[in-house]
């Protein structure tokens, strides 16, 4: 049973209210469920379908399109080693092989202790810092084999715990909209006129 917890349901409703149409909240809610369980469960997808009044098939259709959503348990730390051109030119292969040796798993799998999942990844927008990798989507730059060992050690020992939260947590903070200053989302069909600041006759464009 891994539906969203009551507190997350409250949060979900707050997120849904941010959008003119509720289905826009689908990806954020999938992230929310992944933050809760470390991966996206079928129950969570059914629950999200209920919250958005869509079918579970629509939820899984969207969810499986995106790389970041996992549908089985993964390690506490997902290590993505970039394989695209700039990193490849600067030794991504060697780094990946080293990672496989150190963690004792092949790329694409999870260590027995459930601590690490090692994955090949595509360009991480850090091409000048090649070879690079991400741990739970936090960048590590110009990673030497020695530095990789250090990193794994830091994660194992918990030294990096507050820097790198467990898999599923996207941001350690989250945008919160102050009720007193928020305009609020309106369904497009309920808006027919130009916003107040646009000169009435005119049409800014």
């Amino acid at each position: 049973m891994s539906r969203l917890t009551d507190s997350n349901v409250l949060l979900a409703h707050e997120i849904i209210r941010r959008y003119p149409r509720s289905k826009s909240a689908l990806i954020p809610l999938l992230h929310l469920s992944q933050e809760q369980n470390g991966y996206v469960t079928n129950d969570a997808m059914r629950h999200i379908a209920e919250l958005l009044d869509i079918t579970p098939a629509e939820v899984i259709g969207t969810a499986t399109f995106y790389e970041m959503f996992k549908f089985e348990p993964v390690g506490t730390y997902v290590i993505n080693v970039c394989q695209t051109l700039s990193c490849a030119l600067m030794g991504a292969d060697e780094l990946m092989h080293h990672a496989e040796d150190v963690l004792g798993v092949k790329a694409g799998s999870t260590t027995a202790d459930g601590m690490f999942t090692l994955e090949p990844a595509e360009c991480q927008a850090a091409c000048t810092e090649a070879p690079c990798l991400q741990v739970n989507y936090r960048h590590q730059y110009r990673v030497t084999t020695a530095e990789f060992d250090e990193l794994v050690d830091g994660l194992r020992s918990g030294r990096l715990a507050d820097e790198i939260p467990p898999h599923g947590t996207l941001g350690r903070n989250r945008q919160n909209l102050p009720a007193d200053r928020t305009v609020g989302a309106v369904p497009p069909e309920d808006v027919t006129e130009a916003p107040d600041w646009i000169p009435v006759a005119g049409d800014a464009s």
Binding site: I27, E67, M68, F69, R181, D196
Partner: peptide
């Protein structure tokens, strides 16, 4: 600077941070 009546004018707009999920 963001939200209702920005800098005391009638300019009001929300900026919503939206998470992608991995798809080039």
């Amino acid at each position: 600077y963001v939200g209702t009546d920005i800098l005391g004018t009638d300019f009001s707009v929300d900026i919503i941070l939206h998470w992608g999920a991995g798809a080039y």
